[in-house]
């Protein structure tokens, strides 16, 4: 499905990622965990084509997407919900969602895709006509994921979906993500809090200072005290 192979990424001549590799199989849930500034967002932004690796490659469903533009990557079937939600403030909730259905044709009709987004996040249906600026932080996160879902993607990339949310909203968003998993797409979630790593994670990658320092099953990381200390910032 998605394969990130040994990428090095520089931002303004500073090396941010070093030899980062990551894989997400079909229907798999992958969690990329690391402290703030470890390189999670840079990794995800590189997959989305915002940044170009100096070395290495990114491929999706067997196709090299390293040099593709972001809109082409999106149209290939990768949905992206950024850390800051990226909601269009001047557009209503409904307009934010429906815009995703105009750029890529899939087996599902536009109506079906919009309906599905509301089904996963029913709270948004009540705010259809509210502008992005009128939504709370939690609602924006939900809308961001709902909008990415409306693309009908094969792979969903969620950058810190629980960041800054109240505990009750975290539960609600986690439940919605579980609903999405049942629909079959692969999911990559980035997270800085080990306690927010969802139970349904298949593979966990730990990133520190731009390097992947651990990859394996979530239960395996519990055995790695050193890694846990790094994630917690106490190492």
């Amino acid at each position: 499905m998605l394969s990130v192979d040994s990428i090095d990424v520089f931002i303004k001549s500073s090396r941010i990622l070093r030899n980062v590799s990551l894989k997400a199989g079909k229907g798999e849930v992958v969690c990329l965990i690391g402290r703030n500034g470890a390189g999670k967002t840079t990794t995800l932004r590189t997959i989305m084509g915002y940044l170009r690796p100096e070395k290495g490659s990114v491929s999706f469903q067997g196709e090299d997407i390293t040099r593709k533009s972001t809109h082409e990557i999106s149209r290939l079937g990768i949905g992206y919900a950024p850390e800051d939600s990226g909601i269009f403030p001047d557009l209503t909730t409904h307009e934010n969602i429906e815009i995703s259905t105009w750029t890529k044709t899939t087996e599902k009709s536009e109506e079906e895709r919009i309906k599905l987004a509301y089904k996963v996040f029913p709270v948004l249906e009540g705010y259809k006509k509210r502008k992005g600026t009128q939504l709370s932080g939690g609602e924006r996160k939900m809308l961001s994921i709902a909008r990415a879902l409306a693309l009908d993607p094969e792979l969903l990339i969620l950058d810190e979906p629980f960041e800054g949310l109240a505990p009750t909203i975290v539960t609600e968003v986690a439940r919605s993500i579980q609903d999405i998993i049942k629909m079959g797409p692969s999911i990559i979630i980035s997270e800085s809090n080990i306690y927010h790593v969802p139970d349904f994670t298949d593979t966990l990658y730990v990133i520190e200072r731009g390097e992947i320092i651990f990859s394996g099953r979530p239960e395996e990381v519990a055995q790695e005290k050193g890694i846990l200390k790094i994630i917690a910032g106490t190492a």
Binding site: M48, G49, Y50, S69, T70, H71, S74, R75, G79, Y80, P82, G86, I87, F88, P89, D90, L91, E95, N96, I99, S100, W102, T103, K104, G132, R147, A148, L151
Partner: peptide, 19 residues
């Protein structure tokens, strides 16, 4: 609406498939 979305946040517009 696509113009307004691009005006609001062109990076996000691209991630939704807008050229």
């Amino acid at each position: 609406r696509i113009i307004r979305a691009t005006s609001d946040n062109n990076e996000m517009a691209q991630a939704l498939g807008i050229n």
